[in-house]
Write a protein that binds this DNA or RNA. Structure first.
Lengths: 204, 204
DNA sequence: CCTCTATGTTGACAGTGGTAACATTGCTGA
DNA sequence: TCAGCAATGTTACCACTGTCAACATAGAGG
């Protein structure tokens, strides 16, 4: 039984967990340090012992989001370890699915909050790491001779941008399929096929 | 000579103009109705005679942004009226350039504010209209026999997403070219070539 | 046991979006 | 012409927010 202690134990983690929960349930706009602290059963200023300000808390949230994204995409990709082309597709499909299923978190990760990620090295590193999954996938495609040469990171960046664009536009209801729901898999496959063809025929 | 009148004349437009100015100079996060009203020389509640709430003001800002974007892209495209392929490229280049040169506005247009665009018909319409420029460009490419068939809007959407992804990632300093500055033209051309090839060889 | 540091609390401050009650203006129709 | 009405601004207030300084408590190490 948890008694009321003066010292919480691991308030930092608790705050992050509650923040993530409130983020997903109420969106970013109404996210408030005070509400989070309240929910944690702690005074409104306690958070400042663990985060210099709200922005830092949000940056930490984004950091965790990138780690989650990386893990998710990696897992999906691994299910198709035999076929580099399918791996490439799965990368994108997983990315968009993650965005749609974790919309508020995804928005926080990508600038809703106006956080300059370069000011938060951990968050930036996590973002780069998640990007690395895509780079690796393309690299395997090249190794297998299925993709023409080209500057690796540039290719990866192009692919990333394409998929990222799909995800963000989809999140905005900018795309509304006739059936109402968004078929993210079909969406990505269409886009990925184009890119894959382009890659195959070299980028001249 | 402007005397101090009780009635402003066109407060709505004045507020929007000041808002846009403060947005570009200070970013979205610190944008405040009160500061805007102050700058307009009007009380902080006056704005509520013209906008039901802050979100509506922001939506109007986004609406104007889309109109500006459309005009800009259209103008750039028209400079290459002879060559559909180059028109396609210019579409993307102009899009990214607009994003980079109007970063805060662009972020407002695309969801920084968490505004559900469907609740603001005018804004939504303006967004669709700007999308229409790209659709038209691809259409001309098809008419000229330079692009394979395919569902028009789907193709356009794919291309839009690709370019939009480039723009948003670039805005986040997610991309940092070795030289420091972002060469948006090279960036887009790389991506657009891939897509164009993919389009040419059909989407199978 | 005593002190130092990490952690949490209280109370304040300025600033925000939003609303209600009141003031002023200028158009409209008798 | 002018009374009245709708549009537009103002003032005063509310609840809420992020942040800070001053204080309180707890636990770890000498």
């Amino acid at each position: 039984m948890l008694e009321e202690r003066y010292h919480h134990g691991d308030l930092r983690q608790a705050l992050l967990a509650i923040a993530k929960q409130q983020l997903t349930s109420q969106g970013f706009e109404t996210l408030s340090l005070r509400a989070i602290s309240r929910e944690a059963g702690v005074s409104h200023a306690a958070a400042y012992r663990h985060f210099p300000n709200k922005e830092a808390l949000v940056a930490a949230l984004a950091c965790a989001g990138f780690e989650q994204l990386k893990a998710f995409v990696e897992a999906e990709v691994m299910q198709h370890s035999a076929d580099p082309r399918e791996q490439f597709f799965q990368c994108g499909i997983a990315y968009v699915q993650f965005a749609l299923h974790n919309a508020p978190l995804f928005r926080v990760m990508f600038g809703v909050s106006g956080v300059d990620r370069l000011h938060y090295p951990a968050t930036h590193a996590a973002a780069q790491a998640s990007f690395g999954v895509l780079v690796g996938t393309i690299q395997r495609g090249q190794a297998a001779g299925l993709i023409g040469a080209g500057e690796l990171r540039q290719l990866a960046f192009t692919a990333w941008a394409a998929v990222h664009g799909l995800a963000t536009l989809a999140l905005q209801d900018q795309i509304t399929s006739q059936q109402g729901a968004i078929d993210s898999e079909r969406l990505v496959r269409n886009s990925a096929k184009l890119l894959w063809n382009g890659l195959k025929y070299g980028q001249t």
